Deep mutational scan, measured.
Amino acid sequence: QSFTCPYCGKMGYTETSLQEHVTSEHAETSTEVICPICAALPGGDPNHVTDDFAAHLTLEHR
């Protein structure tokens, strides 16, 4: 399964590499985005909106 960065649209990330990408490239970004990992999880929330995606990844998807 691969994920797309909700900020810049780059594709092909794993859960881990998406977290690394967001932390390095978009750490200061506070735009509201939908978490693509939550959306892909069975029973996950397809509409989970977060305005601190880097922190959300760290808390929810480590």
Rank of each mutant, 00 (worst) to 15 (best):
A27P: 14
F53A: 03
L59W: 06
E60P: 01
T29N: 14
T14V: 12
L57H: 02
M11I: 13
A54V: 07
V22K: 02
L18W: 00
K10A: 08
H61P: 02
H48L: 14
P42K: 14
G12N: 15
H56G: 02
S17Q: 13
E15S: 07
V33T: 02
Y7M: 09
P42E: 12
S24D: 11
R62K: 12
F3C: 00
E60W: 07
C38G: 06
D45C: 01
L41R: 14
P6E: 02
F53K: 05
E60H: 10
C38F: 01
Y7P: 03
E25M: 07
L57W: 03
L18H: 07
T29F: 07
E32R: 08
Y13E: 05
P42N: 12
C8H: 01
H21G: 12
H26C: 05
M11T: 14
V33L: 04
A27R: 14
I37V: 13
E20I: 03
I37T: 02
D51F: 10
E20W: 06
E25Y: 02
L41Q: 15
G9V: 13
M11N: 11
P46N: 14
H21W: 01
P6D: 02
Y13N: 11
H21P: 03
N47Q: 14
I34A: 11
H48Y: 14
A27Y: 09
S30T: 15
G43N: 12
S24V: 13
I34Y: 00
Q19S: 07
I37W: 01
A40H: 07
T29R: 08
L57F: 10
N47A: 10
T14H: 11
H21L: 02
F53I: 04
L18N: 11
V49P: 05
H61S: 00
L57G: 03
S30F: 13
F53V: 03
H61C: 01
A40N: 10
Y13G: 05
P42L: 04
H61I: 00
V49E: 04
M11E: 11
E25G: 11
E32M: 09
T29D: 12
G12Q: 06
C5Y: 00
T4M: 14
S24N: 13
K10W: 01
T14E: 04
S17V: 08
M11A: 12
A55F: 04
V49C: 09
L57Y: 05
Y7D: 11
T50C: 07
D51L: 11
L18P: 04
G12I: 05
G12M: 00
Y7R: 06
M11C: 13
F3Y: 07
I37S: 05
L18M: 10
T4Q: 11
C8F: 00
T58H: 09
L59Y: 06
L41W: 05
C8Y: 00
Y7N: 09
E60T: 06
I37R: 04
G43I: 03
E20V: 08
E20F: 03
A55K: 10
V49S: 11
T4D: 09
L41E: 15
L59N: 14
T31K: 15
A40G: 08
A55G: 12
A54W: 02
L41T: 15
H26W: 03
C38S: 05
V33I: 07
T23V: 13
C35R: 02
E60G: 11
Y7K: 04
V49M: 12
T31W: 02
A39H: 08
T14Q: 13
G43P: 08
D51E: 10
F3S: 00
F53Y: 01
R62L: 14
L57V: 08
V33C: 01
G9A: 15
H61K: 01
P46K: 15
G43A: 10
T31I: 12
S30A: 04
S17E: 13
C8E: 01
C35V: 01
A27S: 09
G9M: 13
T31M: 08
V33P: 01
R62A: 15
D51W: 06
E20Y: 04
E15T: 10
Y13T: 08
F53E: 03
T16H: 11
D51S: 15
E15C: 05
K10L: 12
L57T: 03
V22F: 04
P46V: 05
